[in-house]
């Protein structure tokens, strides 16, 4: 079965990122094998697949977070704007500033205020914005929570509800003005209403950012994504336009998965 997606959108779409024969290992297991796929600019790319298929590992390779795990290694390459992010001269810290990440479990800094949470990425990078208030308002507005947070900027991040915490994490990520945002099952710990809000947000953010989202929920992938990749056992099985993949999958494994026969 060819892993080169026949339904990859043709130009004028711009390839923002590209995995080239990407492999990833943990000390005791191989997580990814030979992944080659583009990530298209200003599109939402969903990565789906059963637990343990390597989808989270895949996006963690896109901002060099995989190697943070002790003993974890990668092979192959990942390009950002045509340039390798794994080159020997590349600083992973710089990659992570351009390719932001939102995690499965909301992880705002619990005792930091909402305001400081938004600014934390800048502080971590030693940047002192000329007008922090503008940064905070802009990031929270983009994360669709300025109106509900404008009077609670001094509340600790940990006191917010799960959905608010996750949007705060998105705002924190946006404040760094990344180009790509990776989301690792961002709604898996949220209730349906909070989930709907995040999905709306993803839809809006596409205008300005390139988004890759890992999700457990096929409904969510179908709702939010333009392109969908199906991973199975560490390999890319099928990748293409979301509506095509969900209605006319080419690979029998994809069909079995999306019709709920396994996973």
């Amino acid at each position: 079965m060819s892993t080169v997606p026949p339904s990859t959108p043709p130009p004028p779409h711009v390839e923002k990122m590209r995995a080239e024969n990407l492999g990833a290992k943990f000390p005791d297991a191989v997580a990814l094998r030979g992944i080659t796929m583009p990530v298209i600019e200003h599109k939402v790319t969903a990565v789906i697949g059963p637990s343990g298929c390597g989808k989270s590992t895949f996006i963690r390779c896109l901002n060099r977070m995989h190697e943070v795990v002790p003993g974890a290694t990668t092979s192959g390459d990942v390009l950002l704007d045509g340039k390798s992010i794994y080159g020997s001269a590349v600083d992973p810290v710089g990659v992570r500033r351009k390719v932001g990440m939102v995690f499965q479990k909301p992880n705002p800094f619990p005792e930091m205020s909402v305001r400081d949470n938004v600014l934390s990425g800048l502080r971590l990078n030693g940047i002192r914005p000329a007008s922090p208030d503008v940064v905070v308002e802009a990031a929270l507005t983009q994360a669709a929570m300025w109106d509900e947070m404008r009077d609670s900027l001094d509340r600790p991040g940990g006191s917010l509800s799960g959905g608010q915490q996750q949007r705060l994490c998105i705002a924190r990520c946006l404040a760094l003005e990344p180009e790509v945002i990776l989301m690792d099952e961002p709604c898996s710990s949220l209730d349906p209403i909070a989930t709907a809000r995040i999905e709306e947000l993803i839809h809006d953010l596409r205008e300005r950012y390139t988004i890759v989202i890992v999700t457990h929920s096929m409904q969510q992938a179908a709702r939010v994504s333009d392109l969908t990749a199906f991973f199975y056992l560490g390999e890319l099985v099928e990748y293409g336009l979301a509506d095509v993949l969900f209605t006319r999958p080419e690979d029998p494994r994809t069909e079995e998965y999306i019709t709920g026969r396994f996973g």
Binding site: M65, V68, R96, G100, N107, F109, S120, L124, G126, L176
Partner: peptide
């Protein structure tokens, strides 16, 4: 997960430790 948050925001080991 807090360390990961700091790392993903582009903090170095030292910056994550400090902030």
């Amino acid at each position: 997960n807090l360390r990961e948050a700091g790392t993903a925001l582009g903090g170095t080991r030292w910056e994550v430790l400090r902030h």
